[in-house]
Design a protein around this nucleic acid. Structure first.
Lengths: 152, 152
DNA sequence: TTTATATATTTGTCATACTAACAATAAGTA
DNA sequence: TACTTATTGTTAGTATGACAAATATATAAA
C-alpha cells in the first residue's frame, strides 16, 4: 500500500466524512431546518424504533453515552423528543419522539434523501457494496469488542 | 440505494472515520506519545514540506483556519513547531518544525505505520484503489470550489 | 440485611469542526 | 495620498467526540 500521507485511507476517510457532514449541514441551514446532522440521525432513527432507552439508542446510532445525553438534552429543548420515566427501572429513561418530532421527520425526510443522493452521483450500486464491505472490514479490524467476540 | 440507517454511506463513513481516529489515539496513548491524531497529521506533513504558512498548511491538511490556529498553538506549546515571522508579509507566519519536532516524527513514524496497517488487514491493493476512488468522488460531488472550477 | 457489583445517566475536561466577527496587513484604485 | 477590498490569522460561541469520574438505582452475593 502506498505510504504517502495523502494517499492514506485515514486522511481520506476523515476528510470525506467531514465533507459529507458539512455539506448536509449547510443544506439544512439553507432550508432553515433548525437541527444538526447528528440530531437528525437520532430523530430519524427514533421514527423507526421509538421508546428505546438512552443506552440502546446511543449504541444503535454509534454515539458515546455522554455525547448522547447532550444531544438528547438539545433535542428535548427543541421539543422534538422527551424523556419518559420507567417506573420499573428508575435508572433509565425511554426516549420518545414527540408529535412535533414526528412531524419534522416527515417534513424534512424528502430533502434529506435528496441531499444524501447528491453525494452519490457518478457512483453505482456495486460501488456502494464495495464501500460498505471495505468500511465494515476496517471497523471490525479495529473494534476491540468484536475482536473479543470473534475469539470465542 | 438502501435507505436504512445502517446502510447509509454517511453513517458508515462517520462511524469508520471515528473508529480509525479513536483506535490510533488509544495506541498513541498506550505508547505515551503526547500527541493527538490531528496534531500528528500536521507535524508528519511538516516533515515533508516545512516552512509553509498557516493557510497553505491548513488547506493541505484539510483543516479550517480557526481549528488550525488552535492546533498550531498546542504544537508550539509542546515545542514541536514554531511560528516564524516573515518580514515581507507581516500578515502570515511560516510554520516551522523544530528539532524536537523532527526527532519525534522520526521516533514515532514506525509505530504510526504499524497502526495504519492494522486497519487494513484482510483488504487488498485493489480495495484501496476502489476506496480512494469512491471517497474522492463523494468529496468532489460535494465540494463547492471544485464544482466551480469544473464549470470553467 | 448488608455489602458488593453492575447498569444507566450525568458532569467535567480537553480537542476538534464550523460559523461569525474582528484585527492587522497588503494590494489595488481613484 | 486616501479609500476600498482582499488576505491572513485570531477569538468567541456552540456542537460534537472521547475519556474519566461521579451519582443513582438495581441486582447478586454473603
Amino acid at each position: 500500500m502506498a505510504t504517502e500521507l495523502f494517499s492514506t485511507y485515514s486522511y481520506l476517510l476523515d476528510r470525506t466524512a467531514r465533507k459529507v457532514k458539512q455539506y448536509a449541514q449547510r443544506r439544512f441551514n439553507a432550508e432553515n431546518y433548525d437541527i444538526t446532522v447528528d440530531q437528525w440521525l437520532i430523530i430519524k432513527n427514533l421514527n423507526n424504533t421509538n421508546d428505546l432507552n438512552q443506552s440502546q439508542l446511543a449504541d444503535i446510532t454509534g454515539k458515546d453515552h455522554p455525547t448522547f445525553t447532550r444531544i438528547i438534552d438539545l433535542l428535548c429543548k427543541k421539543g422534538l423528543t422527551e424523556r419518559k420515566i420507567q417506573p420499573n427501572d428508575r435508572r433509565c429513561f425511554l426516549i420518545h419522539l414527540t408529535n412535533l418530532g414526528k412531524q419534522r421527520v416527515l417534513e424534512w425526510s424528502p430533502k434529506m434523501a435528496e441531499i444524501r443522493m447528491k453525494a452519490w452521483q457518478n457512483l453505482t450500486e456495486k460501488d456502494y457494496k464495495n464501500l460498505k464491505r471495505i468500511l465494515d472490514t476496517i471497523y471490525m479490524n479495529l473494534d476491540e469488542h468484536e475482536k473479543f467476540i470473534n475469539e470465542l
